[in-house]
Simulated assay, not measured.
Amino acid sequence: MTEQTPKTILVTGGNRGIGYAIAQAFKNQGHNVCITYRSGEAPQEFFSVKADVKDTESINAAYELIEKTYGPVEILIANAGITRDTLLMRMTEEDFTDVIDTNLTGAFRVVQRATKGMLKLKRGRIIFISSVVGLYGSAGQTNYAASKSALIGMARSITRELGARNITANVIAPGFVNTEMTAALPEKVQQQYRDAIPAKKFAEPEDIAHVATWLASEQAHYISGAVIPVDGGLGMGH
């Protein structure tokens, strides 16, 4: 396989924000980019499949459609995620389990299904989109932090299990990113977050996309089980 050979890419939650930027970056490289989305509009520029990472049958159906059209998924970006932020004493069990089921178990579902094709191909790249919160912690995000931290253990276990099969698993840990979610925050809160970041600014979605495409490239073939922060220095040392 050369860098010029189009590969089959799947980005979960690829219809907005970081996921969309990652999908666009791979498309710009000439790859066959597929995305899953649960709600909202389906981007016409990608092969878009409506699927819910909380539903195994839905994920299996999405993979079958992708494989029928483009063949096995060679590069998977497990990006789909939700938040249910609230202080620990106010957090319901549903708040906790919904986030875990989407962000963590959902990642497990899409990765497990992808590895079937990767093992047959004898190659594959798995990239988890975690968060600085998974390492740094954040008040009001016990559920989210737990789910994002656990992705690191998942990636490193996969590395030990499948590393000899030419399959890598890595984690990108973004900090605050200019997306619809951060734009909805009051300006005073946004400024407080910026003040805490050594770079004094938020990342752009494309900053995370650049790292994702590099991790999927031949230049990064010997990197696995790594956590790469893209956070302007916010979480350094964690």
Rank of each mutant, 00 (worst) to 15 (best):
G14F: 02
Q44S: 14
N178H: 14
P205Q: 01
T56N: 15
G40H: 07
E93K: 11
M118Y: 13
G235T: 07
N60C: 03
T102Q: 14
V227A: 10
Y63M: 04
F108I: 01
K68N: 03
R123Y: 12
A216Y: 03
K27T: 15
R194D: 09
V211F: 01
K120N: 13
F202K: 09
E67P: 02
T92Q: 05
S149V: 08
I172W: 00
A212R: 05
L151E: 07
S39N: 08
L88R: 02
H238S: 06
V11C: 00
G153K: 15
D85T: 08
Y37P: 08
T8P: 05
Y222L: 08
E93H: 15
V111Q: 01
L162A: 11
T179C: 00
A226H: 09
K188Q: 12
A220D: 09
E41A: 15
I129Y: 00
A184L: 00
A220I: 12
F128G: 08
F47Q: 04
T5G: 11
P205D: 03
G232K: 10
M89Q: 15
A21R: 01
A80K: 09
I77P: 04
Y136T: 15
A23I: 01
F26G: 15
Y63S: 10
Q191M: 03
R123K: 10
A169N: 03
G233V: 15
V53K: 02
K120W: 10
A25Q: 11
N32L: 15
S157R: 02
N79K: 01
F176Q: 02
T92K: 15
R109K: 13
R84G: 07
A42F: 05
D52Y: 13
A78T: 02
D85P: 14
G81T: 01
D95P: 04
V189R: 07
V230I: 09
N178M: 04
L234S: 08
G71S: 04
L65R: 14
T83I: 13
S217A: 09
E45S: 13
G163H: 06
A203C: 12
T86H: 10
K68R: 12
A107F: 14
T102V: 11
N178W: 05
P43I: 01
G237Y: 14
I228E: 12
E218M: 06
E57I: 02
